[in-house]
Amino acid sequence: MIEVLSWIGQALILIGTFFYFLSTLGLIRMPDVYNRMQTSTKSATLGSLGVIIGVGLWAVGKGYSVSWISMTIIIAAFILLTNPISAHVLIKAAYEKGIPLWHGSVVDKYREFLEREEKERDAETQAASQAGTQGENDAGEVRT
C-alpha cells in the first residue's frame, strides 16, 4: 500500500524535471529578457513544486518518517511565495535599466503612463517655480 506513495512521488519528480527542462528551453529560445522571464519563472516554480513534494512522498513511501512531508511542504511553500517576488524585482530592474522590449511587441502602456506622469510633474514644477519667483516667501522649499 505504502509503495503507491513512492510511485506517485517518482511520477511527480519526473513531471517536475520536465518543467525544469521547459524553463531552461524557454531561457534559451525566447527573444528578449521579458519573455525569457515569462517562460522560465513559471515553469521553474511548478517544477520545483513537483520535485520537492515528490521527494516528500517518495521518502514516506520508502519508510522514512512523516516529517519529511511537512518539511518539504515548507520548502515548496517558501519557493512558491518568493519566486514571483524575485521575478517582479528582476523585471522591474530590467525596465528601469532601459532594456527595450522585443521588436515584435505590440503595446507598452507603462511607457505611456510614465511619460504622462513625467509631463504632469514638469508642469507642476514649472507652475511651482513660477509661483516661487513671483511670491517672496517659501521659494527655498521648491525643488526644481
Partner: peptide, 21 residues
C-alpha cells in the same frame, strides 16, 4: 504551464508580447 509549454515548444514561437494596464 501547459500554455507556456505550447509557446516554447512550438517551432514558430507564437508570442505577441506587450505591457497592458
Amino acid at each position: 504551464n501547459l500554455d507556456v509549454a505550447y509557446r516554447v515548444l512550438h517551432p514558430k514561437r507564437p508570442i505577441r508580447p506587450g505591457i497592458v494596464r
